[in-house]
Amino acid sequence: MTGPLLTLAAKELRERLRNRWVLAVALVFTVFSLLISYFGAAQQGVVGPRSLALTVSSLVSLVIYLVPMIALLLGFDAIVGERERGSLELLLAHPLSGAELLLGKYLGLAAALTLSTLSGFALVGALLMQQFGVEALWHYGGFVLSSTGLGLAFLSLALLLSVLTRERTRASGLAIVLWFVFVLVFDLALLGTLVASGGALAGDAVAWLLLANPADVFRILNLFSLEQAEGLFGLGALMPPAFASPLWMGLALLGWIVAPLAAALWRFKPS
């Protein structure tokens, strides 16, 4: 099984490298992350990263908006696009099962997304190491790793959309809706419900509901990894103590990667 799967994954990665998709996304990450890291405090009359916690918390906001959008745009037509072009049957004419096709597509796209993310944040990592020492790379490395995980989670969701839809235009529309729901609407709706209930829905209930959004899992994971950011955002009063564990939040993010991909494998019908 691994032979055809890896061959297809390598083909997907080569295509993204050939059309300079990886380079373009890496440049976007580099430019925005440098601007936020170096000029984020310019309004206070200072330039350059003044605090590791504040720099990472600012980059968290960038990642939550940018990475899910890039992942959804990358993967929404992975299957439905092949189906519309009539090349899906051609691919399956090779000694390739449906599961191998889907996993090969995912692995290739995931490799491209991971490569662009790591490349895009590398320069900021060097800047932070120069400013705060090698120890800063421990926290920053965790942030970059979780950013990659967030991208893979939304890539899994994009692949699921691509499997469930029969038209590329519908898949693209649903991908945009998904981005709006998880990145913009979810927290507003939760806050509105909390206010409307007069605080009846509070404490652990709200905290557990946040696990239903991979973007919030990513946010909690990174803000709890730095005590300064935890105090800055006042999350300590809202989150259960178990949420302070990077292990549990990392497992929650892993669940968001595995579950949609497993659902896509279950629902994928090549014909």
Rank of each mutant, 00 (worst) to 15 (best):
L127N: 04
E227Q: 14
L253A: 14
A202H: 12
G199T: 03
L232V: 05
P260M: 05
E230M: 14
L159M: 11
G231S: 03
M249E: 05
F243P: 00
A264T: 00
S225T: 15
L127F: 12
R219S: 08
T193S: 07
Q130V: 07
V134G: 04
S245D: 12
T169A: 14
A262F: 11
G173V: 02
L194K: 05
V144R: 02
P241G: 08
L201E: 08
F224K: 09
V144C: 02
A212G: 14
W248L: 15
Q228G: 02
F182C: 10
V177D: 07
H139A: 12
P241K: 14
Q228Y: 13
L137N: 01
W138Y: 15
H139W: 09
F180E: 06
A171Y: 10
A158L: 05
A262P: 07
V177E: 06
N213I: 08
F154I: 04
A153H: 00
A205P: 10
T169Y: 10
A200C: 03
L157R: 09
P241S: 13
L254H: 01
L150V: 06
S156M: 12
A171N: 09
A207N: 02
S146K: 05
G142A: 13
R166F: 06
L226Y: 03
V206I: 14
R170H: 11
A263Q: 09
G250M: 00
I257T: 01
L209H: 05
A202E: 15
L221T: 00
S172C: 08
I220A: 14
R170A: 15
L145R: 09
L232D: 14
F154V: 00
R166Q: 11
G141I: 03
L164N: 00
A259T: 15
W138G: 15
L160E: 04
R219F: 14
S156H: 05
G133I: 02
L226T: 02
P241W: 11
A202Q: 12
G231C: 08
L145I: 12
L223Q: 10
L174N: 02
L191W: 13
M129D: 09
L191F: 10
I176V: 13
A202L: 12
V258M: 03
G236H: 09
A196E: 07
F180Y: 10
P214L: 05
R219W: 10
D204P: 07
L137K: 01
G250E: 01
